[in-house]
Simulated scan of single mutants.
Amino acid sequence: MSGTDTAAGADLVTYELRGDVALIGLNRPVKRNAISDRFVEAIFDAVVKAQREAKAGVIFGHGAHFCAGLDLSEHSEKPLFEAVQGSRRWHAVFDQIERGTIPWVAAITGAAVGGGFELAASVQLRVADEKAFFALPEGQRGIFVGGGGSVRISRLIGPARMGDMMLTGRSVSAADMERWGGVSYVVPEGEALDKALELAARTAQNAQFTNYAIINALPRIADMSSEDGLFAESMVASLATMTDDAKERLRAFLEKRAEKVQAPE
């Protein structure tokens, strides 16, 4: 299946399948792709669809910006408990990306602010246009991160740098965010989506079980003690070698049908 999806929510999120890679486009450019509750549900539906149909996925923003974060006009009217439930729903939806069944790459252009940065932090690989910028203006808005940023962003760049961003409201360039560990690649202006597609297509060629283990075992091992992590690693490594896919790939390497690892260009 290919082409643009026309199901419910396609006005907020576009969906396209290119080979083994699903492209999810945030499609609210007049609001800099600010996220509402309905937007979150549209993202969820597209992610679930991608997990059925694709081996890897890319998330990008239509227009000039990736995502400017929470739709404050909606959030400001919520009762307390509804706000708690909304935050927990964001957690559940973004968890489908972070610890789902396929790897995800974010192509970040323009603003990745607040909830947009939280969304980007839930993927496995982040590609930033050199003109992209990152910010967490919650301190100035009188709110707090609610889409998982206190865990995901903090683990990417460290709590001190995240606290700096929230307290001061400073914008951080793509180059600085790469240096901090918040993005994986910085590319020339206009090339983020192409690079994200290239990386997603590459990950789609990996063994399915290994991709699943990288997505799901690595972050859990990071939460364990050293000894527990090493034990879990042994179990996952042993399971991986038992799959038919792994056996065939190892056989191909030993029979010189697979390329050796090369030095970087």
Rank of each mutant, 00 (worst) to 15 (best):
F231Q: 15
D95H: 12
C67E: 08
Q140D: 06
T243L: 02
G86Y: 12
R32P: 01
F94K: 03
L193Q: 05
Q85T: 03
F60M: 11
E41W: 08
E198Q: 14
H62D: 14
W180L: 14
E82V: 06
A240T: 06
I97K: 08
V186W: 11
R88N: 09
D95R: 15
A200R: 02
A46H: 01
A68S: 14
D194T: 13
K78N: 06
A64H: 14
A237V: 04
D129L: 01
M224I: 03
G146E: 08
P103M: 06
T243C: 02
A34I: 03
D223K: 10
V48G: 02
K31R: 13
M224H: 03
E16V: 00
I215A: 04
S76T: 13
S238A: 14
K131V: 03
I157G: 06
A64K: 14
S2A: 09
G19Q: 07
R251A: 09
R88L: 14
V93C: 10
Q262C: 07
R99Q: 15
F134P: 10
V172R: 01
K131F: 06
D245T: 13
G146C: 02
A22V: 05
A50I: 01
R251N: 07
M235H: 11
S36R: 07
R155F: 05
A217Y: 00
G57H: 02
G182V: 05
S154V: 01
G169F: 04
T203A: 15
P264S: 05
G25R: 00
T203V: 13
V183G: 05
F44V: 09
K195A: 09
S184H: 15
I102A: 05
E248A: 15
A258M: 09
E130P: 06
K247W: 03
A83D: 08
R179N: 10
A135D: 01
K78W: 12
A112Y: 05
V187D: 01
L136H: 04
R152M: 14
P29M: 12
A174Y: 02
F134L: 05
D95Y: 09
E74T: 11
Q96W: 00
A7P: 08
P29V: 12
T243G: 02
D95P: 00
H75E: 12
F39G: 15
N27R: 10
R152A: 14
D5L: 09
E138V: 07
G149M: 04
D37F: 11
P188T: 00
M1N: 03
V236N: 00
L17R: 02
K31H: 13
A42K: 00
V123T: 10
T168F: 03
R220I: 09
D95A: 15
G148H: 04
W104T: 06
M235I: 15
R52W: 06
L136E: 13
G229C: 03
F134D: 06
A196C: 10
A246K: 05
E77M: 11
P103G: 02
A120G: 06
R251V: 00
I108S: 07
L167H: 11
